[in-house]
């Protein structure tokens, strides 16, 4: 928006400093927030179809622990664990191992299923929360 910039006469002097500061600020932001065309998941070396470690970028305990929990619930999963290898790197590692002698034990499918199950869980909680809220409003009047 060139016109937007031009009607700021007072910012004329220090405008270079402002853009530098903005560029710096932008860099800091990118640490906390996913940059669009960055790949979010990587598979770590040494992975097979029944045991793999994934590296999630820009994810933390919020996703890690909930995902670990829901994947552990899958009966084909022998082990699922997560870690944040270093607190100053925005990375989360997730390890999944499945029973080799069971069917549907492909770790990628297990991971996908875990994510979708968590989606379903979110849906159920949203639905129940909305129902409970509507019921509360009905009983106590609109607050």
């Amino acid at each position: 928006m060139a016109s937007e910039n031009q009607d700021m006469p007072d910012a004329g002097g220090p405008v270079q400093g402002l853009t530098d500061a903005r560029a710096r600020q932008e860099e800091e932001r990118q640490d906390a927030i996913l940059v669009d065309d960055e790949q979010k998941i990587h598979v770590l070396p040494g992975s097979t179809d029944t045991s793999a470690s994934f590296e999630f970028l820009h994810e933390d305990h919020t996703l890690g622990n909930a995902l670990r929990y829901i994947i552990t619930k899958n009966p084909v999963v022998e082990l699922c664990a997560y870690s944040i290898p270093h607190p100053s790197e925005p990375k989360m590692h997730l390890r999944i191992q499945t029973f080799a002698d069971m069917e549907d034990n492909n770790v990628y499918d297990v991971l996908r299923k875990g994510l979708m199950d968590l989606q379903d869980l979110c849906d159920v909680v949203t639905e129940n929360f909305t129902t409970a809220r509507d019921k509360f409003v009905q009983e106590n009047g609109s607050t």
Binding site: I41, T62, L111, R112, C122, T126
Partner: peptide
């Protein structure tokens, strides 16, 4: 806020699923 919270969590998951897919 609560509903948005769950939605943001779902968007996170959707983002990963999308990439996985």
């Amino acid at each position: 806020i609560v509903q948005q919270g769950i939605k943001v969590l779902q968007q996170k998951l959707a983002g990963v699923i999308q990439e996985l897919a």
